[in-house]
Every structure is written in structure tokens, then in C-alpha cells.
């Protein structure tokens, strides 16, 4: 779909909690559609964006669609690099165990299941951000 040979580094930066606004849901939509473009994609969750990945979301009481399980399907869309900022988690009283387990199957390694979610410190996240060609902000 993209111009032949054009592969860019795209990062989706998610900084808002889910449900209060539509941005978290829309970010997922773009990631799913964008998978068809064969770009070098990664996702970053920082600030209140870390709440998008929590385990055990239940939206029955607010009458909205629970889209949290979609994150677990991202591996099927070849989204294999999902970064969560450690400082953002800690500042919100969360740790990795509060988050869903996200994995992908590595086709280069006999389809072994591997974690796609990585907890990274600010310094590492800053480095990753600085390497991007395009940053989508949500």
C-alpha cells in the first residue's frame, strides 16, 4: 500500500486513561489499520496511558465497549514491541503485575511465544522516541 521501499519508524504514544475520552480506542484502531502498511511500528504507554493495559477491566457499569482484550491480539498484527514507562507506572501505584500479559509468536524462532510488553525506564524510552520518523500522539 505504501510507496515501495518506504519503511518508516512509527511510534504510537498513548498518554491518556481509557474510557474518559475516545483517544485510547482510536489509537488501537489506527494501530490495527496501520498493520497493513508494513511499517516499523512500536507502541509506548506513559503517563495515564499505562491504565489502558490494566488487567481486569469491566465496563458493564458504564455501558461502554470493553476494548482491553484487543491489546492481547496485537501480536497477530505483528505488533511485537510495546513499551511501558516504569516511572509512569510507579507514580500511579502500579507495577507490571497489574498489567495484561501481551505476547507474540516469533516466526523466526519456530513461532515461539515471546513477551511483547517491555517495562522501560525514562532514559530508554527517551532514546526510543528520539529514533522515530513519525510519532502519533493519543
Amino acid at each position: 500500500m505504501s510507496e515501495e521501499g518506504t519503511i518508516k519508524k512509527l511510534m504510537y504514544v498513548n498518554r491518556k486513561a481509557p474510557y474518559g475520552t475516545i483517544y485510547a480506542l482510536e489509537s488501537l484502531e489506527v494501530v490495527l489499520i496501520g498493520a497493513a502498511f508494513d511499517q516499523d511500528v512500536c507502541l509506548a504507554f506513559l503517563d495515564d496511558g499505562v491504565f489502558q493495559l490494566t488487567e481486569g477491566q469491566n465496563t458493564d457499569g458504564i455501558g461502554m465497549k470493553n476494548f482491553s482484550k484487543t491489546y492481547t491480539a496485537l501480536g497477530d498484527y505483528e505488533v511485537t514491541r510495546i513499551y511501558v514507562e516504569r516511572e509512569s507506572l510507579e507514580a500511579r501505584g502500579l507495577s507490571e503485575t497489574d498489567l495484561q500479559e501481551l505476547t507474540y509468536e516469533d516466526e523466526d524462532d519456530d513461532w515461539a511465544e515471546k513477551p511483547s510488553l517491555h517495562i522501560v525506564g525514562s532514559d530508554e524510552l527517551a532514546q526510543l522516541m528520539a529514533e522515530q520518523d513519525v510519532v502519533f500522539s493519543f
Binding site: 498518554r15 506513559l46 503517563d47 516511572e87 525514562s122 524510552l125 527517551a126 532514546q127 522516541m129 528520539a130
Partner: peptide, 15 residues
Amino acid sequence: RNALDSCLRLAQDSH
């Protein structure tokens, strides 16, 4: 909002 705070935390030197 904390946008400026977060930006300054993650912006690299010379940005």
C-alpha cells in the same frame, strides 16, 4: 496538564 513535565522528562539533549 503534565504535558510539559513529561516532555522535559523524555526530550533528548539538543531537541
